[in-house]
Design a protein around this nucleic acid. Structure first.
Length: 287
DNA sequence: TTCTTTGTTCCGGA
DNA sequence: GTCCGGAACAAAGA
């Protein structure tokens, strides 16, 4: 499930491979994504030149001269980039070694640089939406987002003020995109472990040093994940079909009943559900 | 058939 | 009115 690091990696890859190219044609195999593609989707984009691709939280933003394409991957959305000269591009066998199922290729963008951009999404919880304005502040999805984790204003002061009187647990707070935007279930679990904070802790009970640790470790875990090419769990793949390596570095996610990786701890990783989301933590060293 | 998975939204209770 | 947790929703695979 793409969280901030995965979307960042896709953004970099797209900028490298397809920015400055023009969309020559679009072929839609399935309109029914999270939100049904509009009837004008093709005419909105054909002929437009991709100026650059940027990221905000878990969203990708394609910039054209006067328009924007907003993309959210949901659970299983991904982009693949292939050479358009390859005639097998629509054939199942072409995708075998990429661990991609071509029946979930929903949109093909033919580009002027000889490449094809493919949107693939197994669950179809992702979406693509065009806007006839470049003003991001008019986009409802974006304007409700809180600070990015790497924003200098995402600091102890902001955190402390935000949690005054808050009774919700820290895990739900970190998942709340209006508080900090870009974290999902995996990285929240990992950041809480690194900070030795139990996911069920009430926000208002957090000590100053714990808040400092959380802020530090959120930034740290995201940077590491980006440097490893993202996490490959649940289908994350780069635009060439390659998997990320970060899953080899999980401390708690998916590690139910394993020993805590802190050698001095000797604790065991527990799995519980918080708001119907699986949460993993060490029952001994996370207080 | 049932369970699991996610981000987001909605609803009811406090 | 506000806050919070739980449920619902989208779809598909095991």
């Amino acid at each position: 499930m793409p969280e901030l690091p995965e979307v960042e990696i896709v953004k970099r890859s797209l900028n490298q491979k397809i920015s400055k190219s023009r969309i020559l044609n679009i072929k839609i195999h399935n309109k029914r994504l999270r939100y049904k593609l509009t009837n004008s989707f093709i005419q909105d984009l054909v002929g437009e030149k991709i100026i650059k691709i940027s990221r905000k939280s878990k969203y990708l933003i394609f910039y054209f001269s006067k328009k924007i394409l907003l993309v959210h991957f949901g659970m299983t959305g991904k982009f693949l980039i292939k050479k358009s000269s390859n005639k097998k591009i629509f054939k199942t066998s072409f995708y075998y070694d990429l661990n991609i199922i071509p029946k979930h290729n929903h949109i093909y963008f033919q580009l002027s640089n000889g490449l094809v951009l493919i949107y693939n999404d197994i669950r179809r919880f992702g979406f693509l939406k065009t806007y006839n304005s470049k003003k991001l502040r008019n986009i409802a999805f974006l304007k409700k987002l809180g600070l990015e984790p790497f924003d200098k204003n995402f600091n102890e002061n902001y955190f402390s003020n935000y949690i005054v009187g808050k009774k919700k647990n820290i895990k739900n707070l970190l998942m709340d995109q209006t508080f900090v935007s870009g974290l999902g279930n995996i990285y929240v679990n990992e950041a809480l472990f690194l900070s030795k904070v139990k996911p069920t802790r009430e926000c208002a009970s957090l000590k100053k040093h714990e808040i400092r640790e959380l802020i530090k470790n959120i930034k740290k875990i995201l940077k590491i994940a980006i440097s490893k090419g993202g996490s490959s769990i649940k289908n994350f793949q780069g635009t060439s079909g390659e998997s990320g390596k970060f899953q080899q570095f999980f401390y708690v996610y998916g590690l139910k009943n394993k020993k805590c990786s802190r050698l001095w701890c000797k604790g065991e990783i527990k799995k519980i559900f918080i708001c119907n989301r699986s949460s993993f933590y060490c029952s001994k060293c996370q207080k």
